[in-house]
């Protein structure tokens, strides 16, 4: 049970949030021009890293905002939290 710092609300218990999978997977702007393989890559392929991973989280029982989290899946340490559309912090 970790603590997540919502970029809009601050420090909150993990139970207020829901996880939304890997971050920075952009929905293709022109899906019709993609091959089956390319579309399948967007649709199905996700990393499952043991270590530092970029993730989407939603403050479901709070402000309902989506945002990004950089989390080490091996120890749940959160390295950074940043808003949708923002670039991940460089270090």
């Amino acid at each position: 049970m970790f603590i997540i710092t919502c970029p809009f609300c601050g420090e909150r218990d993990q139970s207020e949030f829901s996880a939304g999978g890997e971050a920075h997977i952009i929905r293709p702007k022109q899906p019709t021009e993609l091959s089956d393989d390319e579309w399948a890559d967007f649709l199905f392929m996700r990393k499952n890293i043991k270590g530092v991973q970029f993730e989407r989280w939603n403050h479901a029982h709070g402000c309902r905002k989506w945002f990004n989290v950089i989390r080490d899946t091996s120890n749940d340490k959160i390295h950074a939290v940043y808003k949708m559309g923002e670039k991940p912090p460089s270090d």
């Binding site: 939304g20 952009i26 929905r27 989407r56 939603n58 479901a60 309902r64 905002k65 989506w66 949708m84 559309g85």
Partner: peptide
């Protein structure tokens, strides 16, 4: 509702 919010906030801001 949460699916629509997801698309609004992340894909079509």
């Amino acid at each position: 509702l949460s699916k629509l919010e997801d698309y609004l906030q992340t894909e079509w801001p």
